[in-house]
Design a protein around this nucleic acid. Sequence first.
DNA 1: AATGAATGAGACTTCATTCAT
DNA 2: TATGAATGAAGTCTCATTCAT
Lengths: 184, 184, 184, 184
Amino acid sequence: MNTRKRRQQIFSTALTLFSEKGYDQASMRDIASHAGISLGLTYNYFKNKEALLMAIVESGIEQIEQDWPNYSAENLQQWLVRYFTILEKYRNYWLLLRALRLQSSLTQQLEGHFDELNNFIIGDLAILMQQNGHSKALPEAILLYATLDGMATQYFTNKRYPLNKMLALLQRKYDPATSPAEAP
Amino acid sequence: MNTRKRRQQIFSTALTLFSEKGYDQASMRDIASHAGISLGLTYNYFKNKEALLMAIVESGIEQIEQDWPNYSAENLQQWLVRYFTILEKYRNYWLLLRALRLQSSLTQQLEGHFDELNNFIIGDLAILMQQNGHSKALPEAILLYATLDGMATQYFTNKRYPLNKMLALLQRKYDPATSPAEAP
Amino acid sequence: MNTRKRRQQIFSTALTLFSEKGYDQASMRDIASHAGISLGLTYNYFKNKEALLMAIVESGIEQIEQDWPNYSAENLQQWLVRYFTILEKYRNYWLLLRALRLQSSLTQQLEGHFDELNNFIIGDLAILMQQNGHSKALPEAILLYATLDGMATQYFTNKRYPLNKMLALLQRKYDPATSPAEAP
Amino acid sequence: MNTRKRRQQIFSTALTLFSEKGYDQASMRDIASHAGISLGLTYNYFKNKEALLMAIVESGIEQIEQDWPNYSAENLQQWLVRYFTILEKYRNYWLLLRALRLQSSLTQQLEGHFDELNNFIIGDLAILMQQNGHSKALPEAILLYATLDGMATQYFTNKRYPLNKMLALLQRKYDPATSPAEAP
DNA sequence: AATGAATGAGACTTCATTCAT
DNA sequence: TATGAATGAAGTCTCATTCAT
């Protein structure tokens, strides 16, 4: 099997296990055996467990950023739906990143990545906000992002979370026609 | 030192370390040594590491619920400020609970506790919403709770998060005078 | 409570636990709590766990030797029954001594005690043998003692062992009337 | 070193130590270091200490039962000698099994194995008894087995035990020519 | 005489990592 | 490139023993 594929195989297995069980609870043997390869081989592709984690995090962020334009939306209402579509697609990344963020004792290195992704999304959101006529688009974007983040957390950790209902409510709230964010 | 104090000492040291480094990364030896006692002694007060965690989680939720009435608010604007005051006070609990929630392989027992606390807060919020004249208070409360959750996450993991600004913006958004949630 | 009684209390609790669970599996805390006293108190009466064991072993052998004359028998048939009566009475001692014997890494000290008790019983048996007309009483006694030992082992470790049947069979075997040990 | 040999190496080291010092007193580190390997490696071959014990017990009984036919005897006199030959060969197994039997808190599983082996030997013995003209062969076999068991215990725990003398005496006792078990 | 909190050694076990093949 | 045997550090937990009260 070629090097890139092999790397990808270890990679995605590790992502799954890290996000399901947590970084500490997923052992290298776990990963190797779920990937159907030998324990030692993982070390041919990744220097050590932490490097594997870092590769996953970095690549995850990179993938999301590359994938993002495919989901561009014309208005906020569309955007909101698409945001959760992407989230669903990158569910494991999201769960892993969130869990890591809550554990400091992380490399400083990770912090930068987190901020990068956050700002990336918030920036995108702010542009739409501006188009929607918000005068203070950035603060609005930051606030909305918090809402989305909270919804995602609930959605991913609570099977009964009524995501669609909440999404509809949110769309109404940000519909310029029915509920102008700024009073005239 | 008396038994209750000693227990409390281990307890709060563990809470700090669990919330800082994560449950897995904080070793019992860590906890003991930060508490200034021997490793073995921790086991005189808590059956094992998991029992220590459970004691912390349960007591945390209990404390918050008991403390809650002290922060009752007359309107949503007040409530929002007080919510973050409580959050700050129980910061470590919040961080721990959130990290645990993101790691499955949790006891079913924990799930129940999480839901309990969530519903407790959402319920409180829904009442205020109703007083504010919202006809669909519960969905509104759930959505607002997501926002608060997202803000908390950002605030606790990002030193530069402009909490106060966001809070002010949120207050304006939910001020019945300036921005009626339902059009007449 | 007076010293002698307290000592006896720890003593007999320890004997029970040692014989039931084994010396290693019975902890000092176990013993103290089953005896209804504090952990520390055991150390006021016995220097340490090994000393407690030694005291039990020595006293057990001493007790048996003192008790022995109360069970004197007129002939071998009687003796055999009485032997198992005593055995039943000192069941825990027997089990403990036997288990200890099978573990070397014992103090040499114990070895001496074991031999002492064995010889004591064999000597008693040999006298009866001689009275029964056996010319080589000592070897006969040693052999019979092995039989008794084997029976005891089976009896104590197998609830369904037909001790009475075996005892009857043994009595017949050693009845001078029906089965002279030496052919004329 | 190949896997089978390595396993066997750990296996036999453990058997020796378990039988010498007892299961509890022999630590996994003991076993590893006597086997000349690292502590962790033992766990590549046996799930845990108890599994190692079980493997030893089961394999011991299996080996004995397979080896048994090689020692078949034409008459009881021969059989007796051969019995002790086998016993000597499997000395460590015998000592371990006996020690385990005296410690309750055993798995039920072990109980079954013990009974199996006992019945296996007693059955073999009963057949010979019957050939020897005993009408009640099974009780006789059970009784003789007790004798053998007692002799083995003495022999294995007492360096000065006159096994050969006792064996000769026993052979005479069960010789149909000199001492018919049943009077005409 | 009595308590049980406190200690620290040591037991079992897991796991990241290395290395000979 | 690929394997998995092998290592040793580290983690959880137990327990004999001591000691202040």
